[in-house]
Design a protein around this nucleic acid. Structure first.
Lengths: 210, 210
DNA sequence: TCCTTACTGTGACCTTCGTCACCTATGGCA
DNA sequence: TGCCATAGGTGACGAAGGTCACAGTAAGGA
């Protein structure tokens, strides 16, 4: 996997940079539901996703997990860059949704490559940019929309990201990610079913028409 | 002003870069309440704040303005960088709070300097990083906190940024920025006054103890 | 000085959402 | 087949916050 994944996922990187990543990076595996990083943890490296799928959460003091966005293969965690560069604690939590493989780049390379490789520079900037827009969109939803719209958006996003109409989550799990409660999610889903938007199953929601 | 402001506000920039900024940048002035950029606008340049104070808002489709964060002299608008780089429309609105002076850098220099000046590179990355954290903190507040806490935080931020205990805003204006309503803000402020946290005046709020 | 206007205070009421209680349905397994 | 754990459904209720109506009050202009 190591041989082929880097050029395939990061085709814009110079050959030399691709080689350095393979040499200096450390491949790590995470099982489904395993945490890649925890709130409050210090970073020693930046992570590039090679395989699988990662979800990024913001946690409050009571341990509520608020889902913000997905990270897919070929993307990097902007926060690991933020924190790596400032030796600061993580403000977020990352969790593997599937079996996930990442490559961890020790943080001093991050800095070094910035001057050395133009493509790395672009990649870092591009990563910030993309995550920035995700955050803005997240703010929109919680600032201006009600739970009904947010739930629908959440399901849509899940559908697009996972590439399936069958969402294998129970109501409690969805409620947690939206920082709401199981009953509210159940009620809203029921309403959506009445409108023909979804079909409800045990432990799963089938998207009909959103 | 042009002569002294750049080295003073951006001391980390190489002399050569400081000179280029002065040569290539275009100084612009904005009056209080004037918009530096509007939602939906295209960018042709990145803006560095030289003087004054700027507030950044997210707008929804109905024209509600949700306040996100301040930009002070020596800072840059991360979004102007995001959009400049992708020739995309602005997703935010920026408004001058005081008489404000900025220097606009045509976007092709942004790219050029990235390879040419290490300090420019650092500045851009640092700008993203700082704004990223502001957004995360904004998300925290609207996701996990009630209006009472958010109002208090808003006042505190205003106090720190403006450096005064007297906040010259009426309740309606505050409500708009928090995406709430005048009555709610009035009620909460009254409660804060009873707790001795503030003293209410016409068109102004005096911070006593937050 | 008086009048108009904008700002503020407050009670009544509604909607949304969170919480509690309790019930039903489903599926695995002894 | 029956038991039980887990998921889902639903009514009742309360809190937060948005909306409406209206009253009081200060400030600035005529």
């Amino acid at each position: 996997m190591e041989i082929s994944a880097i050029p395939r996922l990061f085709p814009a990187f110079e050959k030399e940079l691709q080689r350095e990543i393979q040499e200096q990076g450390e491949i790590r595996f995470f099982k489904t539901e395993e945490q890649l990083m925890r709130t409050g943890q210090y970073f020693r490296s930046t992570m590039l996703i090679l395989n699988g799928l990662v979800k990024i959460y913001r946690e409050d003091d009571d341990g509520n997990e608020f889902f913000m966005y997905y990270l897919q293969p070929g993307q990097a965690c902007a926060l690991s860059m933020v924190c790596a560069a400032e030796h600061k604690r993580s403000a977020i939590m990352a969790k593997a949704v599937k079996e996930t493989e990442i490559i961890a780049i020790p943080l001093h390379f991050m800095e070094e490559w910035m001057g050395k490789y133009k493509s790395w520079n672009h990649f870092v900037i591009g990563t910030y940019r993309a995550r920035f827009e995700e955050l803005l969109s997240t703010i929109d939803h919680i600032a201006f929309r009600g739970m009904d719209e947010r739930l629908e958006f959440y399901l849509k996003k899940h559908q697009d990201t996972m590439g399936t109409n069958l969402i294998a989550l129970n109501h409690q799990e969805i409620a947690n990610e939206l920082n709401s409660s199981r009953e509210v999610v159940s009620r809203l889903l029921k309403k959506m079913e009445q409108f023909g938007k979804v079909k409800l199953h045990r432990n799963a929601i089938e998207i009909i028409q959103l």
